[in-house]
Amino acid sequence: MKLRWPSVTRREFLNTLFTGWFIAFFAACIYPLLKFIYPNLEKEPDFVILNAKDFLEIPNNSTKPFPWGGKLGLIFKKDDGTIHALKGVCTHMECNIMYKPEERKFYCPCHKGYFDQDGKNISGPPPRPLEFFEVRIENEKLIVSKKGVKVEIPKG
């Protein structure tokens, strides 16, 4: 059957066509754009290997920084001479912390958070204890690893 009048006008047809075209075009652009502007996230390392002699010699009751991925790591020698390693980043707002030897506490200057020598959050806003790592010395290397991560260095 031939219609005497078309059911849509030419203008309606073109408007629909162009609206659909614009929507399809922008929808197709949005996905790659979002994927592009959202960065590739690098994971924190599971372990790092340091030169033992650079860190074993530090005085008792002091710390020395090392790079933990892009973040601050701290090697910490207690009064009794034992070596510990921890992430030097406050659990509140991620500011770098410092060790106050005279108070025997870790301290975050951003919002005045304190942690004791074992990393326990004792005052101020920090919600969680500091993250301590496992430390092992092997062939003059200091292996700092996340708790529960097994690291084996190939010999030679």
């Binding site: 770098n96 200057p109 951003c110 806003p125």
Partner: peptide
């Protein structure tokens, strides 16, 4: 990134109202 945060650090003044609000809330 590996240096400790310097002592007595404060944001710009127009962040103080946020900064203070955060300080008032306990960790948990």
């Amino acid at each position: 990134p590996y240096a400790p945060t310097p002592e007595g650090i404060k944001p710009e003044w127009y962040f103080y109202f946020l900064f203070q609000t955060l300080k008032f809330f306990p960790g948990e």
